[in-house]
């Protein structure tokens, strides 16, 4: 705490309006937010992030319990531990929010995302793309004589790696879902 204060006081000298926030290392956190499935709720959550200057690295939303009318929002945000704590409390404060879990702190969890990747090419490049897709266990979901569309699922890192590999092979378009995540084991959050 004292070093943080010392750092901040150096910055404070530059402005009458005081210091900028602390510069503790920022880490990505995966937050799982259970909300009422109602109009305006997503806008409220997303607006909270932009309004308070938090960032969103990934966002996935869909209804998960039709009978109870609940949706799960999975959001990845980057911040210092204090900012992440703020985000969680701000989310918990919203009337339509039932529950917030920081999966990154919660413990082991699985996170998956789906991507559709279109690659244009013929001959060697096409063959190479198909071979690489096999290694990544990506499926071909559409093809023409000079294009392939792959469906890749996995961790965001795996999807990133696959996209990197496709880059020189004629990658033209990507659509990603953002991640869905749940904790490992028999626990439900």
């Amino acid at each position: 705490m004292n070093t943080a204060i010392a750092n901040r006081s150096v910055m404070a000298k530059n402005s009458v309006y005081g210091d900028a926030p602390d510069k503790a290392p920022e880490t990505p956190h995966t937050l799982s937010v259970l909300v009422d499935n109602a109009p305006g709720v997503l806008a409220k959550i997303v607006g909270l992030f932009s309004g308070r200057g938090y960032n969103i690295e990934s966002l996935t939303v869909a209804e998960t319990d039709h009978d109870k009318n609940l949706s799960r929002i999975t959001v990845i945000s980057k911040g210092t531990p204090r900012i992440i704590d703020q985000i969680i409390h701000q989310l918990e404060k919203q009337v339509p929010v039932h529950h917030v879990t920081d999966l990154t702190l919660f413990g082991p969890h699985v996170a998956r995302e789906l991507a559709l990747i279109k690659v244009n090419g013929t001959d060697d490049k096409r063959v190479e793309a198909l071979r690489t897709a096999e290694i990544f266990r990506a499926k071909v979901v559409d093809t023409t004589l000079d294009s392939l569309t792959f469906e890749a699922t996995g961790t965001p890192e795996k999807v990133d790696a696959f996209i990197d590999m496709m880059q020189p092979l004629g990658l033209v378009q990507i659509s990603r879902t953002g991640i869905a995540a749940l904790p490992r084991g028999n626990e439900a959050i």
Binding site: I5, A6, R8, S9, A12, G18, D19
Partner: peptide
């Protein structure tokens, strides 16, 4: 509030 704390570092 910032009007209460003044410079947070101090």
């Amino acid at each position: 509030d910032d009007r209460v704390t003044g410079n947070v570092a101090g």
